[in-house]
Nucleic acid binder design. Structure first.
Lengths: 131, 131
DNA sequence: CGGAATCCTATGCGATACTG
DNA sequence: CAGTATCGCATAGGATTCCG
């Protein structure tokens, strides 16, 4: 099977308010190596394939393709093909995709403001047992 | 190298306000298969190892150990050992860990309220080209 | 009970080459 | 330009066994 993001094939079965697996489902979608980067890059508007590739940097065309397919499949991103020569394809966030930005930015904000604390904790932890 | 969550070893280099890689850093931490489940399970208070294992379900002791180590390393979870027989170990969210719950729950809420939409999009996408 | 060590497989994903 | 196809290695992570 190709990388294409895994399905939640094992029936979830909830267990208490403020669920659990559901979150896992989302993270299985956007928690991979590239999806959020793509989503964030699309924040400023539609982008072409290679434009995304350059902006993100470090991503292979293979993974960009898979990531975009996955996001498109879940309705977070729309794909528009202009049958010109050379071909041109625009990727853009859908309404659903844009609605994801709030939560994602919240997470980003948390990350940003706690980066130092985390780094410190890491150093302390590693220093304490692997000098 | 053991599964232990990957480091952001490749110097990021920011590029514009509302960054990008930083989010990637957090997601590399909590975006893996189990971390959030653990964090969410610890929401209601301290839990013992096997208690976590049972509650989460489907996680191997190996991965639970690695996940907890990672969270502990980053200062999100604290580990308390009671030198009794048999031994007892409690895991609990730290202040930092609890501060992560806001963002995570925002994501959870988004997931929950958009699950149907996403499922529909998936079915439509798959149906359109792989009947 | 809580974990560490070893083994083994599925997979993620980069590199490269080919196509319309 | 925007993909698709194939190869190949590195990693994630489950199962199992052993230990204090």
């Amino acid at each position: 099977m190709e990388p294409g993001h895994s399905e939640g094939t094992e029936a979830p079965a909830p267990h208490h308010p403020g669920d659990c697996r559901v979150v896992g489902t989302v993270l299985a979608r956007i928690g991979d190596k590239w999806s959020i980067l793509v989503v964030m890059t699309l924040t400023d508007g539609p982008r072409r394939f290679n434009e995304l590739k350059r902006t993100i940097g470090g991503i292979s065309q293979r993974m960009l393709t898979f990531t975009l397919r996955g996001l498109e499949r879940d309705g977070l991103v729309s794909r528009t093909v202009y049958p010109t020569i050379p071909p041109r394809v625009d990727y853009e966030l859908t309404a659903l995709g844009r609605s994801l930005q709030g939560p994602v930015q919240a997470l980003g904000a948390w990350a940003f403001s706690n980066l130092d604390t985390i780094q410190a904790a890491r150093t302390r932890f590693d220093g304490g047992k692997a000098p």
